[in-house]
Amino acid sequence: MTSRRLRVLHLEDAELDHELALAHLRRGGLDVDTLRVETEPDYRSALREPWDVVLSDYNLPHGFTGLQALEILRASGRVLPFILISGAIGEDMAVEAMRNGASDYLLKSRLARLAPAVANAIQAAEMRRAKMEADARLARSQRQLRELAQHLQTSVEAERAAIAREIHDDVGGSLTALRFELAWLERRSPDAETQAHLASARESLTHAIEASKRIMQNLRPAILEQGLVAALQWMVQGFTRRSGIECTLRTSHETLQLPAGVPLVAYRTAQEALTNIHKHARARHVLVDLSLGAGVLSLEVRDDGRGLSKEDLAKAQSFGIRGLHERAGTVGGWIDLSSRPGVGTTLILSIPLGAAGGAADEDDAAGEAAAWGSS
């Protein structure tokens, strides 16, 4: 503790007891300025000034007590050490005072410990204040990181939409024009060999058109304009067709009215989960369950694959799982992930709809860029 003069607020109705406490403080090597108050109004008024410590008798005039003084200090929100001093405080009362936030308690007949008790209490209060400031800075940093993550996801989704439009307008237009040119050549070329080459070119062109549509769908899921349920049905069917893994969609509603941004977050979460299952899980069955109850939208993706070990979850490069948590947070949701090796993995996205913003149709959400892209 520093050697500066300490400001001590003393709640005490007996002048002699006040002088005795002051003498013990000075005898203990503390340089102090004190103010003695007796009543609750004077105490409340004095608390507006800066103090280093509050000393308080237990029994005070007009039925005012040290415990009430402690409660007033706590209600003020100030982190200020409070030491209770009494001529005959019972053990139960002392325990209650400590439980309510008192720094220490002393008997008036044993004030030799007052100076070190004050020094320790002030040091502990300084540590609490430092911790509170550190916690506040950490909370601000975490909030700023969440805002940055949301901004990055917004930028990614906007860029995806821009690329999808370019593919549709430029690449798609060129491929369509090329199809017409091939059709014109096929009608006017009687040569069999030329017809064979044209047929091969048409087949390659068909694959290119399908690939461009698939890329556009991944970049900006236009299927969401049909609603989240329809989009998940389309996703599940495509997953089964591409992977050969049996995938089932179960839903509590055929249609859903969801706040803006929520459908895209749910869609991307399911997309990420199915992609990981296809790459790593070696599963035979997958269940996608979408439900809405008690104001919470829940999306569960469960597989019967090899599962994840603790080492898998703790990998330094497991950005996919971290990304899922960040993306869920952009609409006030969270991710629960449970897995057992050899049993399978369950991922649950939960979104309280009240936290996700005002109500809006899913059609509105399809065009929202304020969601996130895949990791």
Rank of each mutant, 00 (worst) to 15 (best):
R74E: 05
V343G: 09
G332S: 04
S200V: 13
H285P: 07
S189T: 09
G320V: 04
A136P: 02
K108Q: 03
A115G: 04
Q153P: 10
A69T: 01
A112W: 06
Q217Y: 02
A201I: 04
T176C: 14
V79G: 03
L107P: 05
G329T: 06
V118S: 02
V118T: 03
R74L: 12
H280T: 12
M1C: 13
A294K: 03
M98L: 10
G373Y: 00
A281Y: 00
A201N: 03
H24D: 07
R165K: 10
A23T: 07
F64C: 07
T248I: 04
V37F: 05
P259W: 01
R48L: 14
G90N: 02
E40H: 03
M1I: 08
E311T: 14
L16N: 10
A231M: 09
F64Y: 01
W184R: 15
Q226G: 15
K108Y: 00
L175R: 02
I122V: 06
A125S: 07
F319T: 11
A231P: 04
L70P: 06
E181G: 14
T240L: 12
R113M: 05
A196E: 01
L106D: 00
M216F: 07
L67P: 05
D363H: 12
G28M: 04
A102S: 06
A283M: 02
V296S: 11
E246C: 15
P81M: 02
L35K: 00
R179N: 14
V53M: 05
T248S: 11
E159K: 09
R140Q: 08
R140F: 06
A121W: 00
W51N: 01
V54T: 02
G227H: 01
V229Q: 09
D169W: 01
T275I: 08
E300S: 13
P352E: 03
T248A: 13
